[in-house]
Design a protein around this nucleic acid. Structure first.
Lengths: 155, 155
DNA sequence: TAGGCTATGTTGGTCGGGCCAACATAGACT
DNA sequence: AGTCTATGTTGGCCCGACCAACATAGCCTA
């Protein structure tokens, strides 16, 4: 993730795609460190699922997948891990017996709050080199960069 | 990579780390598409290695690894693939018989130029939503974000 | 009512980028 | 001579992201 002595080939090092990938590496490295130190072995999928359940209330696995952008199969796996930690409960939807209704537990809510803190700290670390105004700019630029995605599928 | 109907949990969707990860997903998706269409099955490791060899001249695998930030073992694998396509040649360093001297071939240079074109096109696609001034800002902000890495190891 | 279609959860893969451990051995340094 | 480091290589792991296939529940329609 670091390659510090790094010269980096010239045709690589100034390209936006390269900067983006380094930025992501930095961000996800800090995130991973945060999860490792206070995340009890959970990963980003778990956080996204807990967050979705907390905000949207109980949901089926398929809905969770659609809402979070996580593949159905990965949702299944991640939920099993959350369930074994009692952070989440699965029950069959009586109206639709093929469907599971997933609910966040009290312990899940608490874990989520803890992860919130970890992640908020990481935001600070990631943006540390920038001034407040620059942070705002940076965020706005990324938002604009991504805005197309929402409007035109496959855009 | 897309998750278009995506609402995305609120505590997730506005965090810089999330925007960074989406930006990266967009960028690397476009890159992958470019490599697939005109990259003859090569991937980013191959490009980085070819670029390094082209710019720095023949080098040992260890030096390539250090220069590009690619792990020694991955350098070995990627070079084998490049070698089998005749884009690169390995020869034993007579002065240090444990060391390989890797050289880019003419075909390698040509492939590199082709990849350059592909990748330049991707830069354009990635930044398309931004104005020229915004692109400059965005690049400058990322450069600043990453500048710490060079100065303080593990920073 | 029977047949087909879709949605759901699950299993079991693949891939790329990034790591790490272990090993044999070539050179260097003591 | 003995130790230490550097090199290339093999083989593994992890995470995030996909995909294919499957059984089956529920639907909608011929």
């Amino acid at each position: 993730m670091d390659h510090p002595p790094g010269r980096t080939p010239a045709r690589v090092k100034d390209r936006p795609t390269w900067l983006i990938s380094r930025t992501f590496a930095r961000s996800s490295g800090l995130l991973a460190a945060g999860f490792e130190s206070r995340g009890r072995g959970l990963r980003s999928y778990h956080y996204r699922l807990l967050a979705a359940l907390d905000e949207w209330g109980p949901a089926s696995q398929a809905d969770l997948g659609r809402g979070t952008g996580i593949d159905r199969s990965d949702v299944t796996a991640a939920l099993s891990e959350l369930e074994s930690r009692r952070l989440v409960e699965r029950s069959v939807d009586p109206a639709h017996r093929r469907r599971n209704i997933v609910t966040i537990t009290q312990a899940g809510v608490e874990q989520l709050l803890e992860l919130d803190n970890v992640i908020d700290g990481v935001q600070e670390q990631v943006l540390k080199p920038l001034t407040t105004a620059q942070r705002r700019q940076f965020i706005a630029l990324m938002a604009k960069l991504l805005a197309t995605e929402d409007e035109s599928p496959n855009g």
